[in-house]
Design a protein around this nucleic acid. Structure first.
Ligand SMILES: Nc1ccn([C@H]2C[C@H](O)[C@@H](COP(=O)(O)OP(=O)(O)OP(=O)(O)O)O2)c(=O)n1
Ligand SMILES: [Mg+2]
Length: 742
DNA sequence: GCGGATCAC
DNA sequence: TATGGTGATCCGC
């Protein structure tokens, strides 16, 4: 099956690849998907032999096991060399271990919409199609179309810089709701292939389609058939509805589905023979060839029967997405020469690797001895897994949250009282977020970014878990105060402030030693759970006299009349149930024990709770860690468990390929709305001082002038003389991020 | 546990 | 004029 027909813009993107494909890679089959092959399809071990020549034939790899010919006396005299030799042997053993443990039993797919926000905007305004455009504002862009990327215009770039790079750039305001709703449509389709798929963001997901593939073997051709438009997705003169909804489904309902099995069709000829077409829509179809939904004429289309292989399946998914949304999606990542295409390797790591001669995945293997010495165990394992094409074999979602934070950029604030006020705002928001998720935390971290873009974080760990605004603010304020004092008598001039809470625990598992919040927290939660009768249910300890007073006065309920009211006091443990309040015990330590027990016995344990409960039961808190270190495959490097979708060694060998990883996606509505932050904050701009001219070049380890925002000077320089030509010319590869995925 | 850095999206 | 927000991990202390 040919993938060309599914990718409108694949032509446009060709330039991105051709120039840097080396010869080796030009022989790579441009398969339509990067789904890993089924286990019987490839034996990794065999390929490894062909892929990586034995050490003795390879100059670089020779260093892995130090030359035997090396001066023996030197060897024996030097413990250093001895140790190094051992380490290197261990490294090779590790590789073998990885190889042995390779698991090709699961088929995992990574799917990602092309230039997502931009594509949606173009779809809804086709006149933008052939123009360089980006989504966002003159302050910040969230993404650009491929046309604009040729000029270096990228996500996370300020719009005005984008304009400099590409004066013709059209900037379209973002419409987050639209992207959310399109995302929903896509996810509905994905769920059919893996109900447990893991969405990374609005436009990206991992799927484990192993089970689907199994079922697929039993599926009829009809169930693998879909109608596909043959016209342009933007040809607004024709009906662009999903023909599977406006034609196929109505037809199927009329039992004429067998028509579909004949394969290709043109127009509605075949359906003319459906004499029973008395449904309105079908009449409409027959007589006028007009879509009953949009009122436009149907385009030419065909019924495509998709095969049962992983590739065909992915092709089907992508086709269905395109039919439904008129947007294209990619699966896997196309052959290319950039290590930074690998999830977990960014600009910095790529540069470091390049500096030691590692440019491709094959280099990762060949220079493994070097890397072994240069990098930590974790990083080395990570690199080795990449070059062996070994990835995660599971797709997990809803992983447990480890921190929660909020941060804002604003026009400069330097007045201390305004700084504190901003800090308070953030703490309030954070406190709300914590309570919404029924979480408390112990570690408060503030983040500060000066007007010079220098970022600092300062943390403090509390003795108790909290979600209390007062406590959080007191802590954050203290940290902030220290920083203000630190630069005094100069003002602390900030452009961003943030507050984060970590060391999280579910609130019902926190020992309640603090304020009244604990009681109300637990009780309120119970209320929420039984919204049907809106009565208070639950148990808690009264932490302070104020709360005791409230309950005594029956001011604690939402109008519900309680029986059993008494003169409650601090440290009483009370129970709400059936509109009755009961004192369980009245001394502090009993109360604490009681409430804790109750919390732990709760049946609705979230993952955080479950983990904590488990920890309490377990004698050996390190159990999990031990398991992880025994089995390298359980370890995640940099949080990027590598999908084994690329485990196909054919791919691995020729491509220097890319292994997508797992990480939480984002797509936040707020993140690009710079305007909203301007109005709420007094504007203190002292003079016309420029900000973005200060910047440092690439951040070298030593140079401490880093972190001054993003310097676009180089980028601009590269483009300023070739604005007209660069549309045709591939740009400096360091700027390339275009990727054609199949 | 802390702070800087890197990364994904 | 103008340079995002959230969450995670790793390294070296
Ligand atoms: N730093 C970033 C990166 C991305 N996004 C948003 C806008 C993108 O449209 C969307 C998806 O991110 P991708 O990395 O998948 O980028 P695109 O889908 O735009 O392009 P590609 O075709 O390279 O996937 O997330 C963002 O807001 N900020
Ligand atoms: Mg995308």
């Amino acid at each position: 099956m040919n993938s060309e027909d599914l990718s409108d813009h694949s032509d446009e993107e060709d330039w991105m690849d051709t120039n840097w494909l080396n010869e080796e890679m030009s022989s790579v089959s441009t398969e339509s998907s990067k789904t890993l092959k089924s286990p019987n399809n490839c034996s990794g071990t065999q390929h490894i032999q062909g892929l990586f020549p034995p050490a003795k034939n390879n100059e670089d790899a020779c260093t892995t096991k130090l030359e035997k010919k090396m001066d023996d006396s030197l060897m024996s005299r030097s413990k250093f060399y001895e140790n190094e030799r051992k380490k290197e042997e261990q490294a090779d053993m590790l590789l073998e271990e990885f190889e042995r443990a390779r698991d090709l039993s699961r088929t995992i797919v990574h799917i990602d919409m092309d230039a997502f926000y931009a594509a949606v905007e173009i779809r809804d305004k086709p006149s933008l199609k052939d123009k360089p455009m980006a989504v966002g504002s003159s302050s910040m862009l969230s993404t650009s179309n491929y046309h604009a990327r040729k000029y270096g215009v990228r996500a996370a770039m300020p719009g005005f810089i984008g304009k400099k790079l590409c004066p013709d750039l059209i900037i379209v305001p973002q419409n987050f709701e639209k992207y959310t709703s399109v995302s929903k449509q896509v996810k509905n389709i994905l769920a059919e292939y893996d109900p447990n798929f893991c969405p990374m963001s609005l436009d990206e997901a991992y799927l484990d389609i192993t089970d689907h593939l199994q079922k697929r073997q039993m599926m009829s051709e009809e169930d693998r058939s879909y109608l596909c438009r043959k016209c342009d997705n933007l040809d607004t003169k024709q009906c662009l509805c999903d023909l599977n909804e406006v034609i196929k489904q109505p037809m199927c309902m009329k039992k004429s589905s067998n028509l579909l099995q004949e394969g290709k069709k043109k127009g509605l000829d075949e359906y003319r023979s459906d004499q029973e077409a008395d449904e309105k829509s079908l009449k409409c179809l027959e007589n006028t060839k007009i879509c009953p939904v949009c009122g436009k004429p149907f385009p030419d289309y065909e019924a495509v029967v998709f095969g049962s292989s992983p590739d065909d399946t992915v092709h089907e998914m992508r086709s269905r997405i395109e039919q439904k949304t008129r947007l294209t999606a990619s699966a896997g990542i196309a052959p290319n020469m950039m290590l930074s295409k690998i999830s977990g390797i960014g600009k910095v790591t790529e540069q470091m690797l390049n500096a030691v001669g590692v440019v491709t995945c094959t280099d990762l293997y060949n220079k493994r001895a070097l890397l072994y010495h240069l990098y930590s165990q974790i990083s080395f394992n990570y690199f080795m897994r990449i070059c062996l094409g070994i990835g995660s074999t599971t797709v997990e979602r809803d992983s447990e949250r480890k921190s929660i934070s909020t941060e804002r950029t604003f026009s400069e604030i330097s007045n201390p009282s305004d700084l504190y006020s901003k800090c308070n705002e953030l703490c309030e928001a954070l406190s709300n977020d914590l309570e919404e998720e029924q979480l408390k935390g112990k570690t408060v971290t503030i983040k500060l970014k000066t007007v010079k873009f220098e970022v600092k974080t300062r943390a403090h760990t509390l003795p108790e878990y909290t979600s209390d605004v007062e406590v959080i603010f007191a802590t954050a304020k203290d940290l902030l105060k220290t920083e203000i004092q630190h630069v005094s008598p100069n003002p602390l001039r900030l452009r961003l402030m943030g507050v984060r809470m970590s060391s999280l625990l579910h609130q019902s598992l926190c020992k309640s030693k603090q304020k009244q919040r604990t009681l109300s927290g637990i009780v309120k939660k119970m209320v929420n759970k039984s919204t049907s009768n809106r009565t208070l249910t639950g148990i808690g300890m009264i932490q302070d006299t104020q709360t005791a007073e409230k309950i005594t006065q029956n001011e604690f309920t939402n109008g519900e009349t309680l029986t059993g009211l008494d003169n409650f006091e601090q440290n009483d443990c009370i129970k709400f149930s059936d509109s009755r309040v009961t004192r369980m015990c009245s001394n502090k330590s009993d109360s604490e024990t009681y409430t804790e027990k109750m919390s732990c016995s709760s049946t609705s344990t979230t993952s955080i709770m479950a983990k904590e409960l488990n920890k309490r039961k377990s004698c050996d808190n390190n159990r999990e860690e031990n398991i992880a270190s025994q089995n390298p495959l359980l370890m995640t490097a940099n949080g990027h468990e590598i999908s084994n979708e690329i485990s196909n060694m054919e791919v691995c060998r020729n491509i220097d390929t890319i292994i997508p990883g797992f990480q939480k996606g984002s797509d936040f509505q707020d993140s690009l709305d710079t305007s909203s932050t301007l109005e709420s904050v007094p504007y203190f701009h002292s003079d016309g001082e420029t900000v973005h001219s200060v910047l440092a070049g690439p951040k070298n380890k030593g140079a401490k002038d880093a972190e001054i925002g993003m310097n676009y000077d180089d980028t601009l320089a590269k483009f300023e003389n070739e604005n007209l030509e660069c549309a045709r010319k591939p740009i400096d590869s360091s700027l390339q991020c275009g990727q054609r995925k199949n």
